[in-house]
């Protein structure tokens, strides 16, 4: 069982009972690229989308956003090529700023923990899609869609396809990929965020383990007695003690 199987199941539960629209896309990258109305690929969106050129905004912090990626070796858990949308599609959002959720689920028998950081790079589309800009933020997805691209036919299906092309082209171990978008309301995005918090805990553990394999310890597993800075801490405690005796210091927290 993979580390994220439980969370993939939770996403499935989340989708059940909600009104959704589904798009089924072809599995191969070549077929995904056929008949796209906007350019997809490196440097397809070299510029930036100014407010005056913006058709719609997704995941502005005032509205809320949540995005995460999960993977599994079990290809039966992911429906390859499926895009699920909860809420209105881009063409119905002219001038709007809506909450946004994005879940990427990928599967492949050869996927392992080493792939974690690499797939994270591709969950934000960067300059890969004409007319779409993801605003830079480490814990949210804040996207802008341009007026020009919507006039050409940009919609959530195109965004989903672009994510699949980007991910599948760059991570050959992927055999199946499914995408979920949420644009309906804050509550729906917030509930997705609850899964995201659990996913993030697993993600952090994976990244720590991967770096440990490489010889780097992201967490400093020292206790006070083995730490070479103990002398410094002892000095600080002396100062705190002295200050307290004089009644001038109020050092917070544990004094260990």
């Amino acid at each position: 069982m993979s580390k994220y199987d439980e969370h993939i199941e939770n996403v499935d539960k989340y989708l059940r009972g909600r009104q959704v629209r589904e798009f089924n896309c072809p599995p191969s990258v070549d077929d995904l690229k056929k008949d796209l109305p906007v350019q997809v690929g490196p440097r397809s969106n070299p510029g930036i989308i100014l407010r005056s050129d913006m058709f719609a905004e997704l995941g502005n912090p005032a509205e809320g956003s949540s995005g995460f990626i999960v993977w599994t070796e079990d290809t039966s858990l992911v429906r390859d090529g499926r895009i699920t949308l909860i809420g209105p599609d881009i063409p119905d959002l002219e001038g709007a700023s809506v909450p946004f959720g994005q879940v990427l689920m990928i599967a492949g028998e050869k996927l392992d923990t080493e792939v974690q950081e690499r797939i994270e790079e591709y969950q934000h589309i960067s300059d890969y899609l004409e007319g779409y800009m993801v605003r830079s933020s480490s814990q949210s997805i804040w996207g802008r869609v341009s007026k020009d691209s919507v006039a050409k036919g940009f919609n959530m299906e195109i965004l989903g396809k672009a994510l699949m092309i980007n991910m599948k082209s760059n991570v050959p171990e992927i055999e199946a990929m499914e995408v979920v978008f949420v644009t309906s309301n804050k509550d729906d995005v917030k509930q997705l965020g609850e899964i995201a918090v659990e996913v993030d805990d697993v993600r952090k553990d994976i990244i720590k383990a991967v770096w440990k394999e490489r010889g780097y310890d992201l967490d400093c597993d020292l206790d006070c007695n083995s730490c070479e800075s103990k002398v410094t801490c002892d000095d600080i405690r002396d100062i705190i003690r002295a200050q307290k005796e004089k009644g001038t210091a109020e050092i917070g927290g544990s004094e260990g």
Binding site: D127, W211, D217
Partner: peptide
């Protein structure tokens, strides 16, 4: 302050976002 993961994450994000 940490964790050291931030060194890696920030580089990854900024290198891509800002070319």
């Amino acid at each position: 302050r940490g964790t050291a993961e931030n060194f890696s994450n920030d580089i990854r994000r900024i290198v891509k976002d800002y070319k």
